[in-house]
Nucleic acid binder design. Structure first.
Lengths: 136, 136
DNA sequence: TAAAAATACTCCATAGGTATTTTAT
DNA sequence: ATAAAATACCTATGGAGTATTTTTA
């Protein structure tokens, strides 16, 4: 199997809490589910990341290195999502307007000026030709 | 749903090939499977990353930004795996040796010196007490 | 004995495959 | 007509839950 972001999240949670049950809670999953994914991650990487022998959980030296990298990766994934989120704001993305060619030349000259007059609509308004009306 | 590394890999493959079928092949999956994941990723992010209108696939401006970040993230995940891989080399990790207490005091003095004499075994050799023989 | 992690098992969501349809050139 | 992506449908893997066992202090 392959490393997943989920596994990295769970590992970071364990590093933060040093407690499987609390880590699971913070991830909104059950303790066994988290346990399993941590084991899978260790198996995937072929190394031991967490010591469960003593009374409290310990992160191995290599584990700490991995945890730090996991934090960075998860941060960058969040950034990626945020970038997208920012561009998702209504009307900052491109507006695709479909009109059948027959009436296009008559309707567009009336509609486009009004569209442009809306504050949120910026140049350029790009007009392309479509050969159908299948616009969703 | 959540962004997955798999989706980021597929997106990068599309950016590299600008062709869904070739991208799918390079990921060792079918074209529909890749198509679906790209759609899911776009849905997750709430933005359009790939233009499929014209004869050849185009990455949107926002898509390019996302692709660059995806590349970086995937690279760092590989690094993470490599770090682990490096520490997986046999006998650079700790060796856990279990012996029942009854015979421990008799056997260990004979075994440990030989263990130490092996080139790959370094100090410190840490000896702990176990209350059982359940060692895998 | 109590607290915490591992294991057993079951179920369901979903990733992926094959076959087909849609779309554009 | 051909090539490419989307869709439909089905199967199977595996992630997560509950219940239980194991382990350590």
């Amino acid at each position: 199997m392959n490393i997943t972001l989920k596994q990295l999240r769970y590992l970071v949670a364990v590093a933060d809490t040093l407690h499987f049950s609390k880590a699971a809670e913070s991830c909104f999953i059950s303790q066994p589910a988290l346990s399993t994914q941590i084991q899978l991650l260790e198996e995937n990487l072929g190394v031991s990341l967490v010591e469960r022998n003593k009374q409290h959980v310990l992160i191995t030296p290599l584990g700490s290195e991995i945890v730090e990298r996991a934090r960075r990766i998860l941060g960058e994934v969040n950034e990626l999502a945020n970038i997208a989120q920012a561009n998702r704001t209504p009307l900052t993305s491109s507006l695709c307007l479909g009109v059948i060619p027959t009436i296009g030349p008559y309707v567009l000259p009336m509609v486009l000026p009004q569209l442009r007059s809306l504050a949120a609509v910026c140049d350029p308004v790009c007009v392309r030709c479509w050969n159908g009306i299948s616009v969703k």
